[in-house]
Design a protein around this nucleic acid. Structure first.
Lengths: 167, 167
DNA sequence: TCATACTTTCAATACTTTCTGAAAGTTATT
DNA sequence: AATAACTTTCAGAAAGTATTGAAAGTATGA
């Protein structure tokens, strides 16, 4: 396979992966493009490579910066802005986990917790509700605990403890 | 809070959570409804409780069965089909993990692996590409390893090893 | 201050997904 | 075989999301 072909494949795959996980296709593609590029790229470069409009490119670049996945870079003597991505996959995973936790998981878990605060005399329905929601909360508590630890951790924790897990 | 209100809140939260993770809102809501119901429910029941059309109810019930998250149940003397959900959160998480791995992760990882099979003489671009895709694959390998272990595991593994992780 | 080189915004449009309701299909019962 | 009780399908409506391209905005420097 040629580099050009391989790149295209990689960018496409990243786009699909993104769209099935709530990040949109273009955003995934822009990110992939920057991941595999040794140089920082400008908006123009991105537009050209991915065949997308200026508005679209701009929007998704902003969003990626917002997520903390890519960074602006200035080249001296140049007016144009360039963008570069974080290349450490470990760092990337931590950033995404932290963001999603903040944006999506936390508010929902709060909501589920509130729902548990239900009053009334015991009945089959109430008991079932309490049981299910309690289980769910315990689980969510454990899961977010792991997630937190993951977010705060360093590379070593992963390769250390997790490697033991998968052996 | 009253049970009715708490239920509504719970169902809504599950719907939102679903829609931000690639499962649609109604599907999440149907699932939530069945989770907290002590009795199996019929299509009619679900339509009424969630205010959705017959077609929509049917579609999402099928999809949930397909995912292995809910089951048909027959009541003797009744013609109508009833549905019940898996209530063990642990089991639920494992089922979802297994499904998503099969449906989404596996094909993409295959695709990314293929992209790594690139030929050509060494250049800055090629080197960068190889480096990034290698890192990514290592990471994906570890992650799917953990996922596999999780899918195959029993409750004990989680409460045992994972509890140690979060302490 | 003006021209230039860019970046950002936004209304219109295209595209995708979800939902509805009616019609068609299926199975059990008389 | 006819009816009744239910389930499934499907075409079109509605809702939601992404994309474009042009216009507006901003900074640079002659």
């Amino acid at each position: 396979m040629e580099l050009k072909e391989a790149k295209a494949k990689y960018i496409q795959a990243w786009g699909i992966l993104g769209s099935s996980w709530g990040i949109n296709k273009t955003m995934g593609q822009v990110h992939a493009l920057l991941m595999i590029s040794p140089e920082a790229l400008s908006t123009e470069d991105i537009m050209r490579e991915l065949n997308i409009s200026r508005g679209n490119a701009n929007m998704n670049i902003r969003a990626l910066i917002d997520w903390g996945l890519i960074f602006k870079e200035f080249k001296s003597g140049e007016r144009r802005e360039y963008f570069r991505s974080e290349k450490d996959v470990w760092e990337l995973a931590r950033t995404v986990a932290a963001q999603r936790k903040q944006r999506e998981l936390a508010p929902i878990i709060r909501m589920l917790n509130e729902a548990r605060n239900v009053k009334g005399e015991s009945s089959k329905e109430l008991d079932e509700f309490k049981k299910v929601t309690k289980d769910l909360n315990d689980f969510a508590g454990k899961a977010t605990g792991i997630l937190d630890r993951f977010i705060r951790s360093d590379k070593n924790w992963f390769t250390g403890i997790f490697m033991r897990l998968i052996r």
